[in-house]
Amino acid sequence: MMNKFYLLVLALAIFSCKEAPKKEMITDTVEEVVSQVNLDKYPTELNKVFEAHGGLNAWKGYKTLSFEMPNPEFNEMQTIDLHKRFDKISTPAYTLGYNGEVWLLDNTGDYEGKPKFYHNLMFYFYAMPFVLSDEGIKYEEVDALAYDGVSYPGYKITYNSGVGASSTDEYYIHYDAKTFEMRWLGYTMTYFSGEPSTKVNWINYADWVKVDEVLLPKSITWHKVEEGEIKDAAKTVNFENAILSTEAKSKGFYSTPENAVMVE
Results as ranks from 00 to 15, higher is better:
residue 2 M to K: 03
residue 3 N to A: 13
residue 3 N to I: 14
residue 3 N to C: 11
residue 4 K to A: 15
residue 7 L to G: 04
residue 9 V to G: 01
residue 16 S to I: 09
residue 16 S to T: 12
residue 20 A to I: 01
residue 22 K to H: 13
residue 23 K to V: 11
residue 24 E to C: 10
residue 25 M to V: 11
residue 28 D to F: 09
residue 34 V to C: 10
residue 35 S to M: 10
residue 37 V to R: 06
residue 38 N to Q: 12
residue 43 P to H: 08
residue 43 P to M: 10
residue 48 K to W: 02
residue 51 E to Q: 15
residue 52 A to L: 07
residue 52 A to G: 05
residue 61 G to D: 11
residue 62 Y to P: 02
residue 66 S to T: 15
residue 72 P to L: 13
residue 76 E to S: 12
residue 78 Q to G: 08
residue 79 T to A: 08
residue 83 H to T: 11
residue 86 F to K: 02
residue 87 D to N: 14
residue 90 S to I: 13
residue 91 T to I: 04
residue 91 T to M: 02
residue 94 Y to T: 08
residue 96 L to W: 06
residue 98 Y to G: 01
residue 102 V to Y: 01
residue 104 L to D: 00
residue 105 L to E: 12
residue 107 N to W: 07
residue 108 T to Y: 08
residue 110 D to S: 13
residue 113 G to K: 04
residue 114 K to I: 10
residue 117 F to T: 12
residue 118 Y to Q: 13
residue 118 Y to G: 06
residue 124 Y to S: 03
residue 125 F to R: 02
residue 127 A to L: 05
residue 127 A to T: 04
residue 128 M to Q: 07
residue 128 M to K: 06
residue 129 P to M: 06
residue 134 D to G: 08
residue 135 E to H: 13
residue 135 E to I: 12
residue 139 Y to R: 04
residue 140 E to A: 15
residue 140 E to C: 12
residue 141 E to P: 01
residue 143 D to V: 08
residue 144 A to D: 09
residue 147 Y to C: 06
residue 148 D to P: 02
residue 148 D to N: 15
residue 148 D to W: 03
residue 149 G to M: 12
residue 153 P to N: 09
residue 157 I to A: 01
residue 158 T to F: 11
residue 159 Y to E: 03
residue 159 Y to Q: 09
residue 161 S to M: 12
residue 161 S to L: 11
residue 162 G to Q: 09
residue 167 S to E: 05
residue 167 S to T: 03
residue 170 E to H: 03
residue 171 Y to N: 00
residue 173 I to E: 01
residue 178 K to M: 09
residue 180 F to W: 05
residue 181 E to W: 14
residue 182 M to R: 00
residue 184 W to E: 06
residue 184 W to I: 02
residue 186 G to D: 05
residue 186 G to K: 00
residue 187 Y to D: 03
residue 188 T to R: 03
residue 189 M to V: 01
residue 190 T to N: 01
residue 192 F to D: 00
residue 193 S to N: 07
residue 197 S to V: 08
residue 199 K to L: 10
residue 200 V to S: 08
residue 202 W to R: 01
residue 202 W to G: 04
residue 202 W to T: 01
residue 205 Y to V: 05
residue 210 K to L: 07
residue 210 K to W: 02
residue 210 K to D: 05
residue 212 D to F: 03
residue 214 V to C: 05
residue 217 P to D: 07
residue 218 K to C: 07
residue 220 I to V: 15
residue 223 H to G: 04
residue 223 H to M: 08
residue 224 K to D: 04
residue 226 E to Q: 09
residue 228 G to L: 06
residue 236 T to I: 13
residue 241 N to D: 13
residue 241 N to Y: 11
residue 241 N to K: 15
residue 245 S to H: 02
residue 247 E to Y: 06
residue 250 S to Q: 14
residue 251 K to D: 15
residue 256 T to W: 02
residue 257 P to D: 15
residue 257 P to N: 15
residue 259 N to T: 14
residue 260 A to C: 13
residue 262 M to V: 14
residue 264 E to Y: 07
